[in-house]
């Protein structure tokens, strides 16, 4: 565990403790709010989130269903925009970025691992892992090298021509991890990565994330499984859209 990990609750501001860390700040959230409006009903999904994530850090976001974990992760992954507040990624404010610029950042800086794997069924393992590099405009030879390295890293290089439906859940999630790391992103966002796996496969995926972290990856994981919360250096507990505790 990082020496800066807080043991005392920090109900609304987790940035303060993070600033005690020596590492370079990769992500900074300042007063983030997210309000969904449907049929004149306002739902406050996130309220006043302050959060710093440093390079090379492994953090987890925990909390009960509906507390705003996934919404927070979506904002971190530039899939959604906050209603209020400032989000800075790699010292660059993202609020005024165009859709094109956000796509570029998602492609180059962020790796996604989803609970439901989200592999594309019509593409082979190789093509699924290659996809982010294709959108980057990388040459075929370089893509091939990167995909092979990535698949070897997750132990799936022998399944390149298989389709997702021919793989077990654990194997699919390993392919999803390979896809997330293939572009060497600044940060990996994992949304309940073990949610659809049995304990053995779940443990294997978590071990993989731990290995990646040891190798220098920055990981932000959403989970409500207490067994995996402890894998992170810091854990932010969300409740009703607020960070109520950092451990």
């Amino acid at each position: 565990m990082d020496s800066s990990a807080q043991t005392q609750p920090q109900p609304t501001n987790a940035a303060g403790s993070a600033e005690k860390k020596n590492g370079e700040v990769l992500i900074r959230l300042d007063g983030i709010k997210k309000v969904f409006v449907t049929d004149e009903v306002e739902t406050h999904a996130l309220t006043g989130i302050h959060l710093d994530i440093h390079k090379g850090e492994y953090i987890s976001i925990a909390g009960p269903s509906g507390c705003g974990k996934s919404t927070l992760l979506s904002i971190l992954g530039l899939l959604d925009s906050p209603t209020e507040g400032a989000y800075t990624l790699n010292e660059q404010p993202v609020a005024n970025l165009s859709a094109e610029q956000r796509s570029r950042i998602r492609n180059r800086e962020i790796g996604f691992i989803f609970q439901a794997f989200n592999l594309i069924g019509d593409l082979t393992v190789y093509e699924n892992v290659e996809l982010p590099l294709t959108y980057r405009g990388m040459g075929a030879a370089e893509r091939k090298r990167s995909v092979q390295v990535s698949l070897e890293r997750v132990g799936m290089s022998h399944r390149t021509k298989h389709y997702p439906s021919q793989l077990s859940g654990g194997q699919q999630q390993r392919v999803a991890v390979a896809r997330a790391i293939v572009g060497k992103p600044s940060i990996m966002l994992a949304d309940e990565p073990t949610g659809n796996l049995d304990s053995k496969n779940g443990e294997a995926v978590m071990e993989l994330l731990r290995d990646l972290h040891r190798e220098g990856a920055t990981i932000c994981m959403v989970t409500h499984d207490p067994r995996y919360v402890s894998h992170a250096q810091r854990t932010f507990h969300l409740f009703d859209g607020r960070i109520v505790q950092e451990t």
Partner: peptide, 16 residues
């Protein structure tokens, strides 16, 4: 739609 969502999440631009 789901596939398009995945592709967009992975960095596909509108023109892609």
């Amino acid at each position: 739609t789901h596939e398009i969502g995945i592709r967009v999440a992975l960095g596909a631009k509108r023109r892609d």
